[in-house]
Simulated scan of single mutants.
Amino acid sequence: MIFILPIAAVLLGFLIALIFKPTFNNTVKLLLSFSGAFLLSITIFEFLPELYASGSKEIGLYIMGGLLLQILLEFLSRGAEHGHLHLDSKTKNIPWLLFISLAVHSIFEGFPLSQNEDLVYGIIIHKIPIAIIISSFLIVSNISKIQILIFLILFALMTPIGSYLGALDFWTESLKNNINAIVVGVLLHVSTTILFESSKNHQFNATKFGTILLGIGLAYIL
């Protein structure tokens, strides 16, 4: 399940982009806002308390390390992890810097999935709108369809690879908690950035606010 669902989420995002050819319109923005609220809530309600229950005094340090890591990754991806993507429509080659950033991000987010089933749903819901946005930009570029397919297949595999690594037996409990804390930092940065940037000119939008509340409520119920 943890290996199949992330791949299915990317495939679904690609199919939506291919069939409906959405631009970054209100529907995608709402889906992105919902995913950000859901992912943030799952992280705070489930993942974060479990980490602090370990009693390690270094958890906060590693969480801040994850935040800094995500900031560095966004210099490469230009914010693709939270819905911002700026590609030259004339480009003919796979944007490898974007791929490297997304790959590192995805491997880290996949690491704790074998230990936290609730987080799986947060990652899946987050991945669908991101896959829609990435696929939409790649489709309208001059990159060949074969290269786009290679990019998306590799992107889809990164989270399952992270899950596989996280399920290996050689991790000590302390090391696993430290890596999970880095993941929390990454997820906190991505999800809060989505929410902070979800309102144009920081104006109140009742529909988006309701969507965010829905994401929080659903995460709490789960």
Results as ranks from 00 to 15, higher is better:
Glu74Gln: 05
Gly36Phe: 01
Leu119Gln: 07
Ile4Leu: 13
Glu46Asn: 12
Leu168Ser: 12
Asn201Met: 13
Gly36His: 04
Val10Lys: 03
Ser56Asp: 13
Ile221Asn: 13
Ala156Thr: 02
Phe111Lys: 05
Thr91Leu: 13
Glu50Arg: 08
Leu214Phe: 12
Ile148Arg: 06
Leu39Tyr: 05
Ile216Ala: 15
Ser77Gln: 10
Phe99Arg: 15
Pro49Cys: 14
Asn26Asp: 03
Thr207Tyr: 10
Phe170Asp: 13
Leu69Tyr: 01
Ser144Ile: 12
Leu214Thr: 06
Ile150Cys: 06
Ser35Asp: 03
Ala103Leu: 13
Trp96Met: 14
Glu46Val: 10
Ser41Gly: 07
Lys127Arg: 15
Leu195Thr: 06
Leu69Arg: 07
Ile2Pro: 11
Leu218Gln: 10
Leu113Glu: 02
Ile42Ser: 03
Ile59Ala: 00
Leu175Tyr: 15
Leu72Gly: 08
Ile182Asp: 02
Ile182Pro: 00
Leu73Ile: 06
Leu85Asp: 06
Glu173Phe: 15
His189Leu: 15
Leu73Cys: 02
Glu50Gln: 13
Thr159Gly: 05
Ile139Ser: 06
Lys92Met: 08
Ile59Cys: 00
Pro22Asn: 11
Glu74Ala: 08
Thr23Leu: 14
His202Gly: 06
Gly210Ala: 12
His105Trp: 07
Ala206Cys: 00
Asn93Lys: 14
Gly166Met: 00
Ala206Asn: 12
Ile133Tyr: 08
His86Ser: 15
Ile143Arg: 01
Leu51His: 06
Lys127Cys: 06
Tyr164Thr: 12
Leu18Ser: 10
Pro129Lys: 00
Gly217His: 09
Ile123Tyr: 01
Ser135Thr: 04
Ile221Asp: 01
Phe204Pro: 10
Ser77Gly: 05
Gly215Val: 08
Phe45Ile: 11
Val184Leu: 15
Ala131Pro: 09
Pro160Val: 04
Leu188Thr: 14
Ala131Glu: 07
